Measured scan of single mutants.
Amino acid sequence: VTTYKLVINGKTLKGETTTKAVDAETSEKAFKQYANDNGVDGVWTYDDATKTFTVTEMV
């Protein structure tokens, strides 16, 4: 189990959250659901070296 981080650069929501998951794909699903639940829709990137997802909304 690995800890993954999500950085949110939204128009109205900014911040970070973490989750523990067995792999990046599992954490990505959880993070995308979290973003969707909070009305964040944007461009996703992933940095495997830091286990960090970033979602950026276009303004």
Rank of each mutant, 00 (worst) to 15 (best):
A35M: 09
A35R: 01
D47R: 02
D48Y: 07
Y46K: 01
V40Y: 05
N36K: 15
I8A: 02
K5T: 14
V43K: 08
D37K: 10
T17P: 03
D47K: 02
Q33E: 10
K32T: 04
N9S: 06
G10K: 04
F31K: 00
T45P: 00
G10V: 12
V1Q: 12
N38D: 02
G42F: 03
W44F: 03
K5A: 04
Y46Q: 01
A35P: 01
G10P: 01
N9P: 02
K51A: 05
T18A: 07
N38K: 14
V22N: 09
T3C: 12
T54C: 06
K14S: 10
T19A: 09
A24K: 15
T3D: 07
V1E: 13
V55P: 00
D48W: 07
N9I: 14
S27H: 01
V22D: 06
G39P: 01
D47Y: 03
G15A: 13
K29P: 01
Y46F: 06
L13C: 15
S27V: 14
T56Q: 06
E16L: 09
K51E: 03
T2N: 12
A49K: 11
V1D: 10
T52H: 01
V43W: 09
D23W: 03
V43F: 10
K5F: 12
T2A: 11
A49N: 10
K14I: 09
T52Y: 01
K11H: 13
N36C: 14
K32Y: 05
F53D: 00
I8S: 01
E57R: 02
V59A: 12
K20N: 13
G42H: 01
V40R: 01
W44Y: 01
G15E: 12
D41M: 12
N36F: 14
E16C: 15
T26F: 05
K20S: 12
V1S: 09
K14W: 10
A24H: 11
T18M: 09
T17W: 15
L6K: 02
L6H: 02
D23H: 04
K11S: 11
T54H: 06
W44N: 00
V22E: 10
T17M: 15
Y34Q: 02
E57W: 07
W44E: 00
G15T: 14
K11I: 15
W44G: 00
E28H: 12
K14T: 10
Y4V: 02
K29N: 07
T45Q: 08
F53Y: 07
T19I: 15
K29D: 04
Y4K: 02
T52F: 01
K32V: 07
E25D: 10
E16I: 12
A30C: 14
A30Q: 12
V43A: 07
G15Q: 12
N36H: 15
F53I: 02
E16K: 06
T52D: 00
A21V: 03
D37F: 07
E16W: 13
Y34N: 01
T50W: 04
D23F: 04
M58N: 11
T18W: 15
Y34W: 15
V1R: 07
K5I: 12
T26E: 13
D41W: 13
D47E: 06
V7A: 03
K29E: 07
K29G: 05
L6A: 02
T45S: 11
V59W: 12
T19S: 08
I8T: 03
G15C: 15
D23T: 06
T54Q: 05
T3N: 06
V40A: 03
G39R: 05
A21S: 08
A21R: 03
V40N: 01
A21F: 05
L13Q: 10
F31S: 01
T52P: 00
K51V: 03
T19H: 14
E16T: 13
T18H: 10
V59P: 13
Y46W: 03
K32E: 03
V1N: 09
F31E: 01
F31H: 01
Y46P: 00
D23N: 12
I8R: 00
N9Q: 10
T19E: 05
Q33S: 09
D41H: 14
A49C: 10
A49F: 10
F31M: 03
A21W: 03
N9E: 10
T45Y: 08
D37H: 08
T12S: 09
M58F: 13
T3I: 13
L13T: 09
V1I: 12
V55W: 01
V1F: 14
T12C: 15
V7I: 14
V22S: 11
A49S: 13
V43I: 13
T12M: 09
V40S: 02
V22K: 13
E16F: 12
S27L: 04
T12G: 09
D23G: 04
N9V: 14
L6F: 05
E25L: 12
Q33I: 10
T18C: 14
K11N: 11
N38W: 13
G42K: 01
G10T: 15
E16M: 10
A49H: 10
E28N: 04
L6R: 00
V43L: 11
V59M: 13
Y34D: 01
K32H: 09
G42P: 00
V22L: 11
Q33K: 14
A21G: 07
A24W: 15
A30K: 11
T12D: 11
V43Q: 09
G15I: 15
N36G: 08
A24M: 13
F53A: 02
K11V: 14
D23M: 03
Y46C: 02
E25C: 13
D47G: 01
S27M: 06
T18E: 11
G15Y: 15
K29Q: 10
Y34C: 05
A35V: 10
V22C: 13
T45E: 11
T18F: 15
K11Y: 11
D37Y: 07
K29F: 07
K20Q: 15
G10F: 11
V59F: 12
A21H: 04
V7H: 05
Q33N: 08
T56F: 07
K14R: 11
T2I: 14
F31Q: 00
N36Q: 14
N36M: 15
T2P: 07
I8F: 07
N38R: 14
L13K: 08
S27T: 05
V1H: 10
T3A: 06
V22Q: 10
T54V: 06
V7G: 00
T50M: 05
T54I: 09
D47M: 03
Q33D: 08
W44D: 00
T56M: 07
W44V: 01
T12H: 14
L6W: 03
Y4E: 03
